[in-house]
Simulated assay, not measured.
Amino acid sequence: MARDAFEDIVETFEFLDDWEDRYRHVIDMGKAMDPLEESFRVPATKVEGCASQVWLVPEIEGEGPGAVFRFRGDSDAMIVRGLIAILVSLYSGLSVAEVTKVDAPAELKRLGLDEHLSSQRSNGLRAMIERIRLLAEKAAA
């Protein structure tokens, strides 16, 4: 179910043998994202459960289960910005109904993130995934 953009990341990670190279790639992905405007850095968009400051802003086109899900995000930590970029590649462009069916832990396991993130980062990643699912569920209703 993963999108082409996510599959590209999987292929890049397979090419990069060393985890430090993969880590740098994640950071570079975060640097390539446009920053989130200050007006969106508000409590309503903040993700609780992350050690870093994280904001996710949904951009849903249409209504009901077929609505297209997109989101933008930002963080004060470069590695977390990269994790947001990975989640954007995994979810953006799917219907809100499809978002709720993505097995994010299984998809992210393909990148080896489960083995190389600190427990705090892993908890933050789970919190971001949960927020994305909740936003999609709300939009699908």
Rank of each mutant, 00 (worst) to 15 (best):
S39M: 13
L135E: 10
A85Y: 04
A106K: 08
I9D: 02
D74N: 12
S95L: 05
V80D: 02
K109W: 07
K138Q: 15
M33E: 13
A77D: 09
V99A: 03
S118Q: 08
F15H: 15
A106C: 08
L16D: 01
L90W: 05
S92T: 11
A51E: 11
L36H: 01
G30L: 00
M78Y: 11
T100Y: 06
L111F: 03
T100M: 12
E98A: 14
F6R: 00
R133A: 04
L94K: 15
R22S: 00
V10M: 07
G49P: 00
E7S: 14
R70Q: 11
E98G: 05
M1Y: 12
Q120T: 14
E11A: 14
P43Q: 07
G30M: 01
G73M: 00
G64A: 09
L125N: 01
R81P: 04
A5G: 15
A2L: 15
E98F: 04
E130K: 05
G124E: 06
D18A: 10
S95H: 06
F69Y: 14
A97M: 10
Q53L: 10
F71W: 01
N123E: 10
R72K: 11
P35M: 07
S75A: 13
I132V: 09
E59V: 10
L16T: 05
A32E: 14
I79W: 10
R70N: 10
E7A: 15
I27A: 01
D28F: 03
E115K: 15
W55L: 00
G124P: 02
A85F: 02
L111D: 01
R131H: 02
M33T: 07
K101M: 09
V68M: 10
S95A: 13
L16H: 03
R121V: 10
S52M: 08
D76R: 09
T100H: 05
V57D: 00
A2C: 12
I79F: 11
F71M: 07
A67I: 07
A44K: 12
V54R: 02
E107T: 03
I84Y: 03
R41D: 03
R41I: 03
A44P: 02
A67G: 09
A5S: 15
E63A: 07
S92F: 03
A127G: 09
L56W: 03
G124H: 03
E63V: 08
E20I: 06
R133N: 06
S119L: 14
E107H: 01
R3T: 13
T100D: 09
P105M: 05
S75L: 06
Q53Y: 15
E7V: 13
A5M: 06
L36A: 02
P105T: 09
A140S: 13
P105V: 04
D103A: 10
R131I: 04
V54Y: 03
M33H: 12
A127P: 02
D34T: 15
G82P: 11
D18S: 12
G66I: 06
A106N: 08
I27H: 07
R126A: 09
E115M: 11
A51M: 14
R41K: 15
E63I: 10
I27C: 04
V68C: 04
L36R: 01
K31G: 08
D28S: 12
N123W: 02
L83D: 02
D18W: 13
A67W: 04
E61T: 14
